[in-house]
Design a protein around this nucleic acid. Structure first.
Length: 847
RNA sequence: GGUCGAUUGGCGCAGUUGGUUAGCGCGCUUCCUUGACAUGGAAGAGGUCACAGGUUCGAGUCCUGUAUCGACCACCA
């Protein structure tokens, strides 16, 4: 072992870029696709949303995965570690609109010569869907470059030849193919039904995309008229929906309303007669115990409407405003006039207006009771969701089918979760589903739903006459492509066809990341080498979306789990223990961090966050990581400066003891990695390493210098060499840059493709001796520290008291201990009880 | 409302199947201008493990309850 490439003055400066470049040019992380499935470790990498900004959270969780990947690679696996970009979906649309100053109008024809203005203008330019998608692709490429640069700099060991975009042609084809196969097996279907609707984006949203937000509201106490003319009071937070009322409902057990069930009452102002009905979901404790059912105010209304078979009286349009046409069920002149006053208003304004009208008519009584209550929002939206009736596509997910639900819950049980308790989130979610997965979105930048509908003689769609494309023409866009047997001229014409205008939910495509990355249906050779994947790393807040939907798709298509393990990472919290978020302005730019602390330093911090545990953003940890990297550099330099000796020269008991202790560390680290516990793996290596530097390096210095003879010197050198190689390998998954730097001083090839250490070659010594040695040296130091003298002060006499077996062990390493402690006489021994105690006389100083 | 997790020295965290004086890092105190490293090294102070019960020869480590924090799910007239 020679280290002639070792620099005079080792430094961390510049090693990040140096090695990132070298790994790329040498293809260090290339996937070997000749490997068979059992030789492969495959990772279903989360494709980050590229329209978002780079975030320390990304650095955090991707480092975790990378540590696992690097361990597996060194442990002999061919690591399949692709990278994808999630550029499909609403966030990209919004960015493109603002960036280029355009908006998508699907009714426009494609303009191949369109170029966006240099500066976005005041008014957005309408463009065709295809033009819009092209702009999305153009912009996301820039974003993806920035992400890739960050990952390379961070040392994420993906194979950059294998990247995909969730909007690229391959992903679109796979997404459409999977959908069509779901359709063919009746796992996908369309239906017209009340749907949660975002009025800003004018699209349906799925249950998985909902979130509750606390909003102020007010109970309005409003009188309906009983047949005898006396009022029946209900309380509602949505008086603007009174024109949409179809019934009043109370609990069948509620004594107050027994006599009213089966009778009718009349709505105030609008004079519409509605029945009073009973249903167990009505809560006697809420409001006045009797509620109005409207079509539709909330999801409970939908349940009542469905189960009680009530009529449909929608008054809210897709834009969230009160429909302008006066509904047929409002027959009185007063009612029509009142409705006209509301028509066209937003729900918010209509609420104020109708409150005025009701106050004037005397039907609104008492003070408004202000409350805050949770309201459903689209997670990306900023207005409350409405419920409107629309035709949508669904994929079955157990929300309406107990049998399927149980099968999917069972799938979740068979995933090995890290940490284990995350499986409960999956179960909670699947067991709480109340409908199938709504996958159609009334948006543009996404994978089009690949179907057309035949039109009847009057040009109306025949919904159950779905026209599907042949597999080999995928991907298609039904707004520009033509179904077999038709011509473009027949689009929209009687007896012609019409394309489905919608796109699929972004999760309908990202639920197929194993298929997209693994080459399902396009590269079957690759597919059989990587699927099912070994691990899905991801964040816990998307268990209900990404993780669950991926399980659903694999269940249908492959009848198995998409992966064996789910490694769930936590969140980054700012120092106040609040979740870090962009809106709070506390986000730190990852590249700045890497510049300041080095990639290894930042990775060290990330690796200290345990799987599934939220972790504070802490530059202190990064500094410690950088200090560790510096220490590795210096300790390695020192070790290599001692020169080399063959491993056969290892004969000294202390040397063998050190390696025996190291063997235990190797075993612990390996075991931890096998359990995805990278934090523990780092911790055991780090603890040993500092002890190695502080004790062993100090203790064997004299011996390595040859002061105790050639044989002992060679033993010391050989031991240091072996230990160094093992330690560098143990750190390599965490600190890939500094370990590679040191490796390059004395080894050929990359440490990252070298083999993971095994403990068997290190065994043979007595690890306990290492411990005893450390205790004795610590005692010698303590005396000097308490005497406030230098560590090189000489000791003229030392009497060691310990049990006899310990004494005999100490005798084995006495020469090293005396040299390290500068004890100028032989030790004296006295038999005694544990622990070891030492009495010392310091040699007089000659000052 | 249901569920899951957390509660250990000033701060951030470990504590594996219950077993001698509860560990680590940061910070703090004192000391060492040692020839790999001052982006260093040595020694030291500081917790009885949220609270109340229980099981046990023995509990931070198992059980029950309470409190606080967080998350997920649900409710949302």
């Amino acid at each position: 072992m020679t280290a002639d490439r070792m620099p005079e003055k080792p430094t961390l400066d510049g090693i990040d870029r140096k090695w990132a470049g070298a790994w790329e040019s040498q293809g260090t992380y290339s996937f070997d696709r000749s490997a068979t499935r059992d030789q492969v470790f495959s990772i279903d990498t989360p494709p980050p949303t590229v329209s978002g900004s780079l975030h320390v959270g990304h650095v955090f969780s991707y480092t975790h995965t990378d540590c696992i990947a690097r361990y597996q690679r060194m442990n002999g696996k061919k690591v399949f570690y692709p990278m994808g970009w999630d550029d499909n979906g609403l966030p990209t649309e919004r960015r493109v609109q603002n960036y280029f100053g355009v908006r998508c109008d699907p009714s426009l024809p494609y303009d191949p010569n369109f170029t966006p203005p240099a500066e976005p203008g005041k008014d957005q330019i309408p463009v065709s869907r295809r033009n819009f998608v092209e702009l999305c692709e153009q912009l996301t490429i820039e974003d993806e470059k920035a992400f890739e640069d960050l990952w390379r700099r961070l040392g994420v060991s993906v194979d950059w030849k294998m990247t995909y975009q969730t909007i690229d042609a391959k992903a679109r084809a796979i997404s459409q193919r999977a959908f069509l196969r779901n359709l063919g097996r009746n796992e996908a279907y369309q239906t017209e039904a009340p749907t949660l609707w975002d009025v800003t984006f004018r699209t349906a949203v799925a249950q998985a995309e909902l979130e509750d937000r606390e909003r102020p509201g007010a109970y309005h106490r409003i009188g309906f008229k009983k047949p005898d003319g006396t009022p029946l009071y209900i309380e509602t937070t949505r008086p603007e929906l009174i024109p949409a009322v179809v019934a009043l409902v109370a609990n069948p057990e509620d004594d107050r309303y027994q006599l009213l069930f089966g009778t009718t009452v009349t709505s105030p102002i609008f004079g519409v007669e509605v029945p009073v009905v009973a249903h167990h979901l009505a809560d006697p404790e809420k409001g006045s115990g009797i509620a109005m059912i409207c079509t539709f105010g909330d999801v409970t209304d939908v349940t009542w409407w469905r189960e009680l078979q009530l009529p449909t009286r929608p008054i809210i349009g897709w834009d969230g405003r009160i429909l302008s046409e006066i509904p047929s069920w409002i027959e009185t002149e007063n009612g029509k006039a009142a409705y006209a006053a509301l028509a066209g208003l937003t729900a918010h304004s209509a609420k104020e207006k109708i409150a005025e009208l009701l106050r004037e008519s005397g039907d609104l009584v008492g003070e408004l009771k202000q409350i805050t209550h949770p309201v459903k929002f689209f997670e990306k939206g900023d207005k409350p969701l409405e419920i409107v009736t629309t035709r949508q596509w669904y994929i079955r997910n157990g929300g309406r089918d107990q049998d399927l639900r149980e099968k999917l819950v069972d799938r979740g049980r068979n995933i090995t979760w890290h940490p284990d308790h995350m499986k409960v989130r999956y179960q909670n979610w699947v067991e709480g589903l109340n409908g199938d997965w709504l996958i159609s979105r009334q948006r543009f930048f996404g994978v089009p739903i690949p179907v057309w509908y035949a039109l009847d003689g009057e040009g109306n769609p025949i919904w159950d006459q779905v026209l599907t494309p042949k597999d080999e023409v995928l991907p298609i866009d039904p707004s520009t492509d033509v179904p077999t047997g038709y011509e473009e001229a027949q689009r929209g014409k009687p007896n012609g066809f019409i394309g489905d205008p919608d796109v699929m939910d972004t999760w309908a495509t990202s639920s197929l990341t194993p298929q997209i990355a693994g080459g399902w249906s396009v590269d079957e050779d690759l597919w059989k080498r990587v699927f099912p994947f070994d691990v899905r790393p991801q964040a816990h807040e998307i268990i209900r979306t990404w993780l669950f939907s991926t399980v659903v798709r694999a269940h249908f298509e492959e009848d198995c789990l998409p992966w064996k393990h789910a490694a769930i990472s936590g969140w980054i919290l700012d120092p106040d223990r609040k979740k870090m978020s962009k809106s709070k302005g506390n986000v730190v730019t990852p590249l700045d961090l890497l510049d300041e602390h080095g990639s290894d330093g930042v990775r060290y911090w990330a690796a200290s966050g345990r799987p599934g545990t939220d972790t504070a953003f802490d530059v202190g940890q990064m500094k410690i990581g950088r200090r560790l990297a510096t220490k590795i550099l210096n300790a390695s330099k020192f070790t290599l400066m001692q020169g080399s000796a063959p491993a056969s020269a290892i004969s000294n008991p202390l040397d063998k003891a050190l390696l025996a202790a190291l063997a235990e560390v190797v075993d612990e680290s390996t075991k931890a990695f096998e359990q995805f516990n990278y934090t523990k793996a780092l911790e055991v290596a780090e603890t040993f390493f500092w002890a190695f530097c502080d004790d062993h390096l100090e203790i064997v210095k004299d011996r390595a210098y040859g002061l105790q003879g050639d044989a002992d010197s060679a033993s010391a050198k050989a031991t240091l060499n072996v230990a160094l190689v093992v330690l560098l390998k143990l750190f390599a998954p965490f600190l890939p840059f500094v370990t590679e730097e040191v490796w390059s001083w004395f080894k050929d090839g990359s440490i990252h493709t070298s083999s993971w250490p095994t403990s068997s070659e290190l065994r043979g010594g007595d690890a306990g001796l290492n411990q005893i040695t450390a205790e004795v040296i610590s005692q010698l130091r303590k005396v000097k520290s308490e005497a406030k003298v230098s560590m090189k002060a000489e000791i003229s006499k030392a009497v060691i008291t310990a049990p006899s077996d310990v004494i005999s062990q100490i005798k084995l390493v006495a020469a090293d201990l005396r040299a390290a402690g500068r004890v100028i006489t032989e030790f004296e021994y006295a038999e005694g009880a544990s622990p070891i105690s030492i009495e010392i006389e310091l040699a007089p100083t000659s000052d």
